[in-house]
Design a protein around this nucleic acid. Structure first.
Length: 848
RNA sequence: GCGGGCGUGGUGGAAUGGCAGACACGUUGGUCUUAGGAACCAAUGCUUUCGCGUGCAGGUUCGAGUCCUGUCGCCCGCACCA
């Protein structure tokens, strides 16, 4: 009899074995092809590992382990993205230094990850808060500065009222802070900026050569938001130039007014010069607009507001018509020129505004059917033809655009222009726990980079991490550190006290894994050339427009300055779905007894569910929700590993559903995966000799190996495991397993359940360790049985089943089908209209 | 509003245009047990009589969960980007 499958002992045994033997340690080896899979390194939060983390880690661990068996030299690594606000907040609250908080959290995360048997090369572990690491983060910043891509600017920033820190546009979600949920307001602050906009085109065009899943590429493109249009130079009655940006220069004849953003420079100028007559009204509107938070602006976006500037008019360059100029916050200062020409007949927003302010609506584009401009703007570009537009009359929209640009350029009234939604990256944070920005300010020389030889510029040891009330970094209070000398003139100077955002360290970490201990460079040329680029990067969708875009920007830049030998960092990007929790407040998830009780009380399930929604709120209507402490549905991976083992946990996470879709965690379902592994364990009692597949298992084995091999490559881990479960059922039907079959099964299962397969491999004397074996192969000719069961349909309805040789001819198959008793009876006396045979599937007879 | 995705048993989910519900969970019955929240075996979409079934209504096809049109619902992203 087999021993008990004591997963606790076995898993510890092999984890120590791998550690001691450095089984997964990778070194440059030019005799083997390399493979570099990457998962997003975690922020080591105080809460410990979430069950969501291992979904991604296990998925690429499966790929990494398979690749090693296939002969690749695999670099699979882990590290810590450890700078960040939660740690600093925890440190403040509990009066513990962030460094200690980080150290403790990392230790916990590391032991949790180790307990899962992930095949990381722990010798390459990195930590963004390690001065040896952030020396190079700072070094990259200096290169950006030296190439004019880092600059300091007084600007309107997103200010989180909760974190008391500046946020990047990407960090503001629905007008509130992505992290803490507090309202975000605008504030003028002097900030370090990175010129990501200089790479806008590259970041779109570079996607073409990459294997990114569609939704990631689309989201990045939309975020960068490239639009082709024209700048048109309007003039004003004051003699000023007022340039607008438009994608519809074909409609220039239909411009009946102009709108500039409340912050537009000309408005200030005109106010100063006394040109504007309704000063109070204009100033009041400006003030109101500046006070609005993003949330308020969003909420109000249906109801257009604005003020007409009294005393100045715009002049349309194409027909010299004078038109009114408004200020309105529906025009953004930060996009285009901060000014637009308004064509209410053909733009929905302009139409709304014109309706509200009673402005003329002039039709210049006509569709195939007459449009009612009292009802809505006509915006169909595809079918429109120009009217009331002088030299454009009769042209299609596209032709008119081209002709108008020609005209504008010929007359010096405008030009072609490409605009982007993407804005420069606000890079300053008024916090302690981040990389110091290696810049000093000298009264004489201005901002100066510190010499590279002085890197890393380390954080000073301080104990008070509270941000200043004025929004200054806590570092600003530490004058010993702040006061320094100017690297340029040697005179007194002050250090920058803001630190870098968390996205800094994670923008290049995958390069450091290639050569983590190098003190001369961020990584050696040899390592960068051998290991790079990342072959397969898996991570969350939430990073698509943040980390993923930022790191592509940095990497393209590093390529331009000759630091890395290729421009794009990641060849392939995939994304996993979130692991959700069951909502304990939803009717569907209540214990049966409670459900009965509620139905008795309220009459029906529907009414019971309604009552729950009334009691708990809208959320009770959703049976599957995000895990949260307040609902008490958070699952701790430690508990699962303790109760079921790491192999079961891994298998379950891969089996629970489509890897790319979100899936609810259901601890009750884990039993199935545990049983699966138990059955594999028990095969040891029923092993017979044999060094080839037995006839009845030959096809199932070949089929399963094919399925598992292919599914691992296409993220279909769930069906790969299902196929192995199906194979087990077939082996059980035979009643025993032979040594060849057992051995191949274990290799196939090894990437998913590495511990149990190592143990069985050793016990069975197949040679040890399993990690030095070769991946199983299949014979394509042996993936189908020699006879198959086909369906016989009459008019598409299945009427009988038939066993036929797999290579039977269509004629023979149809003849056999017709000879079948039920079929013969069904078609008797009818005219056969059509007969067809689909190989190995079915015969369909159409009879009337 | 725009862009992307998705609606399949009690549940998670399978199905190159070809026998819908693989593989699991759960449930029911059984075996073995002092016991079972263990293990194993059997049944399990609904109805059981023809039959009906992939959100709903049409269409294409010999054949549609899959393709097309419309519609309803849910999720995600963007959100006045001119």
């Amino acid at each position: 009899m087999s021993s008990i499958y004591d997963f606790q002992t076995i898993e510890k045994k092999w984890q120590s074995y791998w550690d001691e033997n450095k089984t997964f340690h990778a070194e440059i080896d030019h005799t083997r092809p390399k493979f570099y899979p990457l998962v997003e390194f975690p922020y080591p939060s105080g809460a410990g590992l979430h069950v969501g983390h291992p979904r991604s880690y296990t998925a690429l661990d499966v790929v990494a382990r398979k690749r090693r068996l296939e002969g690749y030299n695999v670099l699979y690594t882990m590290g810590w993205d450890a700078f960040g606000l939660p740690t600093e907040n925890f440190a403040m609250k509990n009066h513990i230094h962030p460094e200690i908080v980080t150290r403790d959290n990392v230790a916990r995360f590391k032991s949790q990850l180790k307990s899962l048997g992930l095949s990381f090369d722990w010798d390459r572990e990195i930590n963004t808060t390690d001065p040896g690491y952030y020396k190079w983060t700072q070094w990259i910043f200096l290169q950006l500065y030296k190439h004019g891509l880092a600059y300091k600017k007084e600007m309107n920033v997103n200010w989180c009222t909760g974190c008391k820190v500046v946020l990047a546009n990407e960090e503001v979600v629905n007008g509130v802070c992505e992290r803490c949920g507090a309202p975000v307001v605008h504030k003028e602050k002097s900030q370090w900026m990175l010129k990501i906009t200089a790479y806008a085109d590259r970041l779109i065009d570079g996607l073409d050569g990459l294997d990114y899943i569609e939704r990631v590429a689309t989201q990045q493109k939309n975020w960068i938001g490239r639009s082709h249009g024209a700048e048109v130079n309007f003039t004003t009655t004051t003699g000023d130039n007022l340039t607008v940006y438009t994608t519809r220069c074909d409609t220039l004849f239909g411009a009946t007014y102009m709108v500039v953003s409340p912050e537009h420079a000309l408005v200030g100028e005109w106010l100063e010069k006394g040109i504007i007559k309704n000063v109070d009204e204009v100033k009041a509107y400006q003030l109101e607009a500046s006070r609005k938070s993003d949330m308020e602006r969003t909420e109000l976006n249906k109801n257009k507001t604005g003020v007409c500037l009294d005393g100045v008019k715009g002049i349309n360059p194409v027909n010299n018509t004078e038109i009114p100029i408004f200020i309105s916050d529906y025009v953004l200062a930060s996009y285009g020129t901060g000014a637009i020409m308004a064509v209410p007949a053909h733009d929905t927003r302009d139409w709304e505004f014109a309706k509200k302010f009673g402005l003329p609506i002039v039709e210049v584009v006509q569709g195939n059917t007459p449009s009612n401009l009292d009802e809505a703007a006509f915006t169909d570009v595809a079918t429109g033809t120009l009217v009331n537009s002088g030299f454009l009359n009769g042209l299609s929209v596209n032709d008119a655009k081209a002709k108008m640009i020609e005209w504008l350029e010929a007359n010096g009234k405008g030009c072609d222009k490409v605009n982007f939604k993407l804005r420069d990256w606000v890079f300053s944070r008024q916090r302690y726990w981040g990389e110091p920005i290696p810049m000093v300010k000298c009264d004489k020389c201005g901002w100066q980079p510190i010499p590279e030889s002085e890197l890393p510029l380390t954080l000073p040891e301080i104990t008070d991490f509270e941000p200043g009330e004025d929004g200054e970094s806590p570092l600003a209070r530490h004058t010993d550190w702040v006061n320094t000398t100017c690297p340029c003139c040697g005179g007194p100077a002050k250090r920058e006290t803001d630190t870098m955002p968390q996205w800094a360290g994670s923008s290049w970490y995958f390069l450091r894994y290639m050569d983590p201990h190098n003190d001369e460079a961020l990584a050696s040329k040899e390592a960068l050339e051998y290991w790079g680029p990342v072959d397969w990067y898996n991570g969350g969708m939430e990073h698509t427009t943040l980390h993923l875009l930022y790191s592509r920007f940095w990497h393209n830049f590093l390529y331009d300055i000759g630091v890395v030998p290729y421009s794009e960092p990641y060849k392939k990007r995939t994304s996993h779905g979130m692991i959700l929790g069951l909502n304990p407040r939803s009717f569907q998830n209540l214990p049966a007894a409670e459900q009965k009780e509620l139905v008795a009380k309220y009459g029906s399930e529907k009414e019971a569910q309604k009552a729950l929604v009334e009691k708990y709120g809208e959320m009770a209507a959703h049976p599957v929700v995000k895990m949260s402490k307040s609902l008490g549905n958070v699952v701790n991976p430690d508990d699962i590993v303790r109760d079921y083992g790491a192999d079961t946990m891994r298998t379950y996470e891969m089996f629970m559903g489509d890897f790319e879709q979100s899936a609810p965690w259901n601890t009750a379902s884990i039993a199935g995966c545990k049983r699966f592994l138990d059955r594999v364990w028990k095969f040891q009692d029923n092993v017979v000799d044999g060094d080839s597949y037995r006839p009845e298992l030959e096809v199932p084995f070949n089929q399963t190996i094919k399925k598992v091999s292919e599914d691992i490559e296409t993220l279909k881990y769930n069906t790969a495991i299902a196929a192995m479960m199906g194979l087990l059922n077939k082996i059980d039907a035979v009643g025993s397993i032979n040594r060849k079959e057992y051995r191949d099964l274990l290799i196939m299962l090894n990437p998913f359940a590495p511990h149990i397969t190592e143990e069985l491999f050793e016990m069975m004397g197949f040679g040890s360790p399993i990690t030095s074996q070769s991946w199983v192969t299949y014979d394509p000719d042996k993936c189908t049985e020699s006879t198959v069961e086909i369906a016989v349909q009459i008019c598409g309805k299945v009427r009988a089943k038939l066993n036929v040789p797999v290579d039977i001819s269509a004629e023979d198959a149809i003849a056999l089908a017709k000879a079948e008793e039920k079929i013969a009876a069904a078609i008797a006396g009818k005219t056969i209209v059509k007969e067809l045979y689909v190989k190995g599937k079915l015969v369909n007879i159409v009879a009337k």
